[in-house]
Design a protein around this nucleic acid. Sequence first.
DNA 1: GAATCCCCTTACCGGTTGGTAGGGACGTTG
DNA 2: CAACGTCCCTACCAACCGGTAAGGGGATTC
Lengths: 206, 206
Amino acid sequence: MATAFRTSASTRDRMIAEARALFAARGFYGVSIAQIAAELGLTKQALLHHFGTKERLYGLVLEQIAEELADLKGALEPGVDPARRLQDWVVAMISDTPPRIERSRLLMREILDNPVRAESAGSWYLKPFLDELVMMLRSVPGWSEASDAQLRATVVQLLGAVNYHAVSGPTFRGIFGAEAAQAMNGIFAAQLQHMLRAVLTAGPGA
Amino acid sequence: MATAFRTSASTRDRMIAEARALFAARGFYGVSIAQIAAELGLTKQALLHHFGTKERLYGLVLEQIAEELADLKGALEPGVDPARRLQDWVVAMISDTPPRIERSRLLMREILDNPVRAESAGSWYLKPFLDELVMMLRSVPGWSEASDAQLRATVVQLLGAVNYHAVSGPTFRGIFGAEAAQAMNGIFAAQLQHMLRAVLTAGPGA
DNA sequence: GAATCCCCTTACCGGTTGGTAGGGACGTTG
DNA sequence: CAACGTCCCTACCAACCGGTAAGGGGATTC
């Protein structure tokens, strides 16, 4: 009972990957399961066969992203200086690969839509990840006595700065032109680390 | 020909205001014109009579927001210290009023959806506003010789941090609970100014 | 070779979408 | 009082939505 379904797992993965791309591009309400299926050369019933409902498919996409975030933080060696770890994490979050951009877009959309969509379960995918960031920040010298609210506000700020870049890329390409956007891209990683360093060394605010 | 339509203009404004609230909460695809109309005690044909299409109504909401942004930057007196002006602007952007939160959410949604939706005209609303911010940043001591890309990257970073707060409020309320979210709210303005000061005094990055 | 299971199909469902057609209530203007 | 324009209504449309029902092709299993 543990054999077979070689290609089937692959098809399932292709479905989730395509759903991830389309949900990231157009949002949950902006894509129909028929459109996702059409992109794969299938009918929507093939999708419904595997996932039952559109919500469940979307949930699996979020689950995949949550796993990626967990892997991403696990890849950071835990021994070193915590400020350095935060910096490494930022670097790891910034690669401009398509899956990474989709991830940022989906997270942003999830944050926007979650209070509205019925099954709010999706948001809990984010919580452990946020808690981990807060813990990381607390172990930075000078931040150990900051309040939870302060730490969380700083983490949210940092997340905003990191994700906004990936999300706004295409729009700013439209506004400023392709080469200007690419120049911004090249600078952004250094700029972001610069900001991170400034914030961390300044310590928590009033 | 310049008289009459007293109540009509008011109805139109109510329609736009309601559309703004719902588009901000659920996104363009997440709301139907019938739902907007129902919220006003009208039928969708009343909306279609005034605006013709859903896209046009959405466009008018964006236009209203663009005007607000223009007013907002105009309200800052141009004489004073530019770093202080940026700080004032951040404060003005952060008030937690419903129209302001709707504005942030709509801008975020626009940035996410715009590359997809056909009429990309919406993003041009943002350009003068961004240019103004870049100019403001350039006149801050220590930033005058930074490249356009550097300035833009910093502005985008700043916008991300500012907007992410308003946008993520409801979701983080769901994750951390109401009181924790409120505590974050109270801290955020000071925290953001703190970050801004740290970044500005540190000067442009490598 | 019959039974079984997996994967995906066609056919169909009730409900909702954005948008059109046309009419009626009401106030203003000749 | 008739004509007209504004504003909003009911009625209707084709298209699409997510989801159900049922069946067929093909490989695996006995």
